[in-house]
Design a protein around this nucleic acid. Sequence first.
DNA 1: GTGAAGTTATGACGATCGTCATAATCGAAA
DNA 2: TTTCGATTATGACGATCGTCATAACTTCAC
Lengths: 203, 203
Amino acid sequence: MTSDTRAKMVAGAADLMSRRGVNATSMREVVRHTATPRGSISHHFPRGKQQLIEDAVVFAGRQVSGPLEHLVQSRGAIAGLRTFIALWRQTLEKSKFQAGCPVLAVAVEQYVNDATEKDGAPDEAAQQHLLDLADGVFADWQRIMFTALRREGVAPARARRLAALVIASTEGTVAMCRAARSAQPLEDVRQELELVLSSALAK
Amino acid sequence: MTSDTRAKMVAGAADLMSRRGVNATSMREVVRHTATPRGSISHHFPRGKQQLIEDAVVFAGRQVSGPLEHLVQSRGAIAGLRTFIALWRQTLEKSKFQAGCPVLAVAVEQYVNDATEKDGAPDEAAQQHLLDLADGVFADWQRIMFTALRREGVAPARARRLAALVIASTEGTVAMCRAARSAQPLEDVRQELELVLSSALAK
DNA sequence: GTGAAGTTATGACGATCGTCATAATCGAAA
DNA sequence: TTTCGATTATGACGATCGTCATAACTTCAC
């Protein structure tokens, strides 16, 4: 059994990142928030905070792609869209609009670490790797939508564009809902996206 | 004439926020980046970093709403959409996909300031005010799109939803483009949004 | 030229940060 | 039970952070 502590830290980091962003999530708060031993950080994450963030991004990605892939395969693209949006709506409402998407946080911020970057210049390789991981998560979600649309008869190029629209607009809307402390934008966008998808499927 | 230093600081803060996010943007870096005197911070911004961020959000909002409102009024909703997306595309490409949207950064992060929050709990009022400002900027952009759609015959409720879709999806796509270091998602989303709008206008 | 008000220069303060080194503790094979 | 590796406890290090106090420097009306 791989350490339970490690998993709690990763999940806690993902949660904190979704509420505060990458840079405002300190390792000390992760251990406080998850009631895990501080001394274990360097043991479970030899590459430090960078590694913890990386794992949190992958974790958050799977947390969504799991249910999404399942629903899409059993009930199709439109159900997938509804699931995707419903998942984010839950996250927003359960946290009283405090939590958003940790992957989006990585895509918006720049990870800076004063301890590792002695020369003042941010570690470009580290930042690029984080962006690659975030991009990979987005690509994975898009792939699921893309496959569903293809299976239901949408042409490849169109399916790619529609998948991009669904993921991007949902991510943007989640952030807007957080700013507005309201799920109204998500409901509006869901409605329009359903129209778009069903019109594309009808052809 | 209101100090030129102050304006440079606000613009510099907005730029840094769009590249690094709110919390990774330090006042010392704003000063370095804009070649402004550090001693002037507390003079021009008596409420400190909080005030600087606030001004940067409003500044960034106007920077977009100005051109957007102009183009929308002279050439209509679809031209407005194209302008909105082209603006962000410029920001992305000119910065080699380093800069995104500073307002989105505020909507995604939580502003934490160790100096002001002695008790460990983040200043909730400050954070709420920042979210209100970000929400206001998004609402302003939506209002411009909404008005254009209304003028071109779209029903109120539909116009509201479409405006939300345009703003939210563009914001989300900008972040995705930053993660992917590519403008492809923006192009894909633009294409689909144009289809949606022109179909809504045709009715 | 003399003030006064508007700016800027500079260094300090307390706090948090990520990381590391060292020592203590635990768990299970021998 | 002893021993050894995995895990945790704890405190220190150097760095940056936002803010503030104080003093110096401008600018310009009078």
